[in-house]
Design a binder for these strands. Structure first.
Length: 715
DNA sequence: AAGTGCCAAATTTTT
DNA sequence: TTTGGCACTT
């Protein structure tokens, strides 16, 4: 039996006494996932076979976390429980039942970049490229095309309201969309949306499959229900229709994936879809101290649309959250590094600290500062290993072996050959890929004189690859061919990429089915770091999106500046979503919360510009936080931090290396200098350790630090 | 017509 | 760090 003494009465009720549909609406840190896991335990205790229980979540991280916590609480009894993201489950089911829908025996799942690639390809072949101004941007187009899946009646609104000037292109857009769908079907490709659409189609159109699947999963539980889109909600409804053993858990204030079609109204609809739904509200917060909770409640207070929950906490603590305004990004980073240093010295484990930010690149400055201060960290969000060009190159070989109709991968392979450009590659691709046996076709293809040698090598490789062995040996074969090409393509950072390929080899070695490997690398791309479990004692840097559902003792949120957070282009509903994003970030903190922003940033025009604190910070009640900075950190301590930093890391001050390092004695009042951003200026004042006041013709008076500013002396 | 090389520009979030 | 455009070469 599983101990359940830490459940409150309502959670206990949800877990044990309720059968049939349950909707749990719960605030941040109220033990949503825990309730799910206890229910899982309860089901297993009462004799439900583990492998007939389906646990669904939205993100990979959440799925991993959930399964980890389940295994932690249930030990071996959770073996066989099926858990994962919607897409991973969809893939599993479609591989098994896809025949009912007339799928070819092999299909390849493609990622966002691939579908954009197809769109571009079609655009040019349909004569729609060029003069791009009137045609939708990549992102708009993507929304139109993928949006058609979830809310097709809104396409017209989207195009006409927001992009009214596109109305003359509506036929082009529709034909592009049609071609895109055809292209995918003809080449055995499926994107993320297709997985769900086909899953739903299977459940709707094929009664025997629906029956079998419903019986296979007699109990369904969904975490983060506010992140599901309409199709996913429909799938849940269809799957649970016969037994109604479904429990969903969500928090409307944490809905941050609407850009993907997630719709938190699904929560409100749930009781209407399932009769006799029991609704349970969990309002006690078990995560954060009262002062942090007060602030986070204040963040969401200003939301224009919300379902009021009054969160309360019984966790003691007096420390109010802190707001720190740095003079610039370096200073902001220095503050975070200093604070982490002192926390760590006081005995706080690094893995209990996290730094969160809006976008992947907001942490660049901090990453440099942390590295030079000797901290090891793990970055989450941003580029994944499988998204980099060299990995995709290698994967392309494997993908054509699995799915010979995969035009995109063929194209990628041909492009690697010297003297073959986009046109030639496409020509070969169109000739061979539509045939029944592209490999045989390839062997007969007559290459041009200038690149016949490389092409012959490719043919040899492809022959060898077809005599399939285990994935690891395929990798060896590919590398024999690819490595020489690879060295010449990526001369600059050859070693780093080489290391990543080694990593890929390690991952492949653990698979014995090539198909499984290909699917996993698309649905569940490995992080670029090696064995995340092995290294524990590490600080986490993460985008807020990837931090969802997790918690740390101490949380820093950086980059809370005007124009950066909320994102500059976010208006209306999107802006509300940014606010919820901020809410999610702040509610990750258990004991201490620091909100930081730089007062000066480098704008897109490569000039410094002053920015204020984020509007979300401005509207907060002043009494709920402490304001740090001013005296304490802009003074000595700040300079100290900067000097330590630059002392450890010369490359930061003069990355180019050719710049002679100037010392304070090289300057006198009146020295004319040049600065890469500010232009020409004149030294006005020399301050203590190595700081100069310089008047710039175009930007006025600036205080610059010698170790940082890339100054050259003009006279 | 295709391929190469260089410089400039931009870079939200994720299944 | 990767992509796009432009001029130049094959």
């Amino acid at each position: 039996m599983i101990p359940r003494e830490d459940l409150n009465s309502r959670q206990y009720e949800a877990v044990t006494t309720i059968t049939g549909p349950v909707l749990v609406i719960a605030g941040a840190g109220s033990g949503k996932t825990r309730t799910l896991i206890y229910r899982l335990a309860h089901l297993i205790d009462t004799g439900v076979p583990p492998d007939s229980i389906l646990l669904l979540t939205f993100t990979r991280k959440a799925a991993q976390e959930m399964m980890f916590r389940a295994s932690h609480l249930l030990d071996d009894s959770c073996q066989g429980v099926v858990g994962g993201t919607f897409h991973a489950i969809a893939n599993m089911l479609l591989r098994r039942y896809g025949g009912y829908l007339g799928f070819q025996s092999s299909f390849t799942i493609i990622d966002q970049a691939d579908s954009e690639g197809i769109i571009n390809l079609l655009k040019s072949s349909l004569g729609l490229s060029g003069k791009g101004k009137q045609f939708p941007t990549k992102r708009v187009l993507r929304n139109i095309i993928s949006g058609s899946v979830n809310k097709s009646k809104e396409i017209d609104d989207l195009v006409f309201e927001q992009y009214g000037h596109l109305s003359e292109h509506i036929d082009d857009i529709i034909s592009l969309q049609k071609h895109y769908q055809e292209f995918k079907i003809n080449h055995g490709l499926m994107d993320y949306d297709d997985l769900l659409v086909n899953w739903k189609r299977l459940l709707e159109d094929v009664p025997e499959a629906r029956e079998e699947i419903s019986q296979r999963f007699s109990h369904i539980m969904v975490d983060e229900y506010q992140d599901t889109n309409l199709i996913q909600a429909d799938i849940i409804t269809l799957m649970a229709r016969s037994h109604k053993n479904v429990m969903v858990v969500g928090d409307d204030s944490q809905s941050i994936y609407s850009f993907r079609g997630a719709d938190f109204y699904n929560i409100m609809r749930f009781p209407k879809v399932f009769d006799n739904t029991r609704i349970i509200k969990l309002e006690e917060n078990y995560r954060s101290t009262q002062p942090i909770l007060k602030l986070t409640n204040d963040i969401i207070r200003n939301a224009s649309e919300k379902y009021t929950k009054r969160l309360y906490s019984n966790i003691e603590g007096e420390l109010r959250p802190a707001v720190y305004g740095g003079v610039d990004e370096q200073n902001e980073a220095a503050f975070v590094v200093n604070k982490i240093k002192s926390l760590h010295e006081d005995g706080m484990a690094l893995e209990d600290i996290a730094v969160l930010f809006r976008s992947g690149f907001h942490s660049y400055k901090l990453e440099v500062a942390l590295t030079s201060a000797g901290f090891d960290f793990e970055k989450r969000g941003g580029l994944k290993l499988t998204e980099s060009a060299h990995i995709k190159d290698v994967l392309a070989f494997l993908r054509v072996v699995v799915n010979p109709g995969d035009t995109l991968s063929w194209n990628r392979i041909f492009l690697q050959i010297d003297k073959v450009g986009p046109k030639t590659a496409q020509k070969i691709t169109t000739v061979i890929a539509t045939k029944d046996d592209p490999f045989a076709e390839l062997a007969c293809y007559k290459p041009g004189a200038s690149w016949s040698e490389g092409f012959k090598k490719l043919i040899t490789l492809m022959k060898e690859l077809q005599e399939t062995g285990p994935p690891a040996s395929l990798f060896e074969l590919i590398m024999c061919y690819y490595e020489p090409l690879f060295e010449s393509i990526y001369r600059d950072d050859y070693p780093r990429r080489k290391r990543e390929l080694e990593q890929l080899k390690g991952i492949m070695a653990s698979y014995d089915s090539l198909q499984a490997f290909i699917d996993d690398t698309t649905l569940d791309p490995p992080e670029s770091e090696i064995s995340p479990q092995a290294v524990k004692e590490r600080l986490i840097l993460s985008t807020i999106h990837s931090a969802k559902g997790l918690e740390w003792d101490v949380v820093f949120v950086v980059g809370l500046a005007e124009g950066r957070f909320p994102h500059i282009a976010a208006m209306g509903n999107q802006r509300e979503e940014e606010r919820r994003l901020f809410y999610v970030a702040a509610t990750r903190a258990k004991k201490e919360l620091y909100l930081c922003y730089p007062k000066e940033m480098i704008g897109s025009d490569r000039r410094f510009m002053r920015v204020g604190k984020s509007p979300f910070l401005q509207e907060l009640n002043r009494e709920l936080y402490r304001e740090l900075g001013g005296e304490k950190y802009s003074g000595n301590r700040y300079r100290l931090a900067k000097e330590q930093e630059s002392g450890n890391d010369i490359s930061f001050a003069g990355k180019t290396g050719r710049r002679v390092k100037l010392s304070i004695s090289d300057f006198t009042v009146g020295t004319k200098v040049n600065h890469p951003f500010f232009g020409e200026g004149e030294v006005k004042k020399i301050k203590k350790p190595s700081t100069l006041d310089i008047h710039f013709c175009r930007h006025g008076l600036k205080t610059l630090h010698l170790n940082y500013a890339k100054l050259t002396i003009l006279s």
